[in-house]
Write a protein that binds this DNA or RNA. Structure first.
Lengths: 266, 266
DNA sequence: TTAGTTTGTCCGGTATTCCAGACATCATGT
DNA sequence: ACATGATGTCTGGAATACCGGACAAACTAA
């Protein structure tokens, strides 16, 4: 247990400043992109070098190659770089290459329009939960900037569904111990979490209230791929004080749409 | 003149099968992504190797690295790979990192909803024109799959605006001679094109009818960045037989919205 | 001014990546 | 049955990509 699982993510920024290790250009590139994603804002080359723990000269060379390929882009007056136009095209290609994903995005649009609530598409990335796309409620000010930000699985309703295929022993290895601690300091008992996962699997949806955030009620329903596995979830993010009848109505809609998007019958 | 400009794009697929040339991993990665984008569908590793002219063993190693980073993804039963989830997140980060781009996308949504027509956001990529994003008209069946596909500049209305900052001599070097030939075999006289570019610059918009496609009328208006340069264009794609009054009305809307999105006053 | 920090570029050497090729499997066709 | 071709893995060796470090220039602070 403990945190053996994090060992997989050796590219994690910052840690292990062990010097003198030569690495491949490809690996540097991957680390660079993940660092940029984590930072979520343009960075200067020197800072990138520090963040991915690479020599400055190497970083310059890599960044220049990527700039030329438009995978990175100069932003602002001097020295800052961020993702470039090519990335946008690659990402667009990813999200439209199959009819399935396109249908999911259309559903997202429709649900947001019909209900006026915040709708999200969620998935896993390594051993963390991420929002893959979202449509924000026009009402409350809730900025849609958390797409791609990694969040501990136990903090989320979707997370409980997305790990539904794992046994308890696997889960213990998979989820870092630190991830059971909520942002406000409370700690979720792992056994309680495992029970939640089990419940979510049996009832085919998951709800959390005031978990990662004291003011939100989250509900998630699974989208299954052609093998019946859960790749992504559909998810409503509601104000906690949403009246129960409306919650039930929305949950019904959510489950129906998620079922319609799933590829395999039971 | 002739086609000296294409020399810049040495990563262009297929050509120059000269063997025995060692290349950096980074360059292989870039070529791989561009090949995938051009192909617009999942590919097998062996075919990728041929397409980017790399040794098979090298290609396997690179692909596996990228798979692990989720920049590529296995698709289908066996052996096919395409862009992965990480690409989607990187691309999302690109298109949302600044308020400007977000406003552009919202405008795209609004214009599509208001008019029911096909709206596109266009830009340059190297010496080609590309659609960066689009909202399709619900009416005619026009599939929105041309985002990211490179098209010769002279085929498009937007292209005439996007090269407006260049002198005639620059343009001659910049645009490959072959790009003046339309898909149906007609050839645009370069001088005529230069005159079009000049006209577009002076009147602040550009229109083409039945150019790249016999059945469409395109109109484009420039979005200027804070330096007054034209980075992207907003564009309507209409049926050629759209009545003139409506065309004028749409053109007015287009110019107004594009102006509102531009950052610098004149 | 001086001293300190950061940026961008360049260069020589070596640790390593990338390449060529072999090999076992599997699929397909005749 | 055999022949053909593609897939995925592995290995040794040589070309070179990456690294450390130096350098000039620009910027800041006192």
């Amino acid at each position: 247990m403990s945190e053996g699982a994090t060992g997989l993510i050796e590219a994690g920024a910052g840690v292990q400043p062990q010097a003198g290790e030569r690495r491949r250009g490809i690996d540097r590139v991957i680390m660079l992109f993940e660092a940029l994603l984590k930072h979520r804002a343009p960075m200067r080359i020197g800072d990138i070098a520090k963040m991915i723990n690479a020599p400055r000269s190497t970083t310059y060379e890599i960044v220049n190659s990527l700039l030329e390929a438009e995978m990175l882009e100069n932003v602002g007056s001097e020295g800052y770089v961020y993702f470039g136009r090519a990335m946008h095209l690659f990402g667009w290609a990813y999200s439209h290459h199959n009819a399935h994903y396109r249908r999911i995005l259309e559903t997202l649009d429709r649900m947001a329009a019909e209900t006026g609530e915040t709708v999200q598409l969620c998935g896993l990335r390594g051993n963390k939960y991420v929002v893959l796309d979202c449509r924000d409620s026009p009402g409350p000010f809730r900025i849609s900037s958390d797409v791609g930000v990694e969040v501990p699985i136990p903090w989320t309703a979707s997370g409980r569904l997305l790990v539904g295929h794992m046994h308890e022993t696997e889960l213990k290895d998979f989820i870092p111990a630190a991830d059971y601690e909520l942002p406000d300091g409370r700690v979720i008992a792992p056994d309680e979490f495992f029970a939640d996962v089990d419940l979510a699997r049996r009832q085919g949806f998951s709800e959390t209230s005031a978990l990662a955030d004291r003011f939100t009620w989250c509900m998630a329903a699974p989208i299954r791929n052609s093998h019946g596995a859960i790749n992504t979830t559909l998810c409503f993010v509601l104000p906690v004080d949403t009246p129960e009848p409306r919650r039930n109505q929305l949950l019904e809609l959510l489950r129906e749409r998620a079922r319609a998007l799933s590829l395999a019958g039971s």
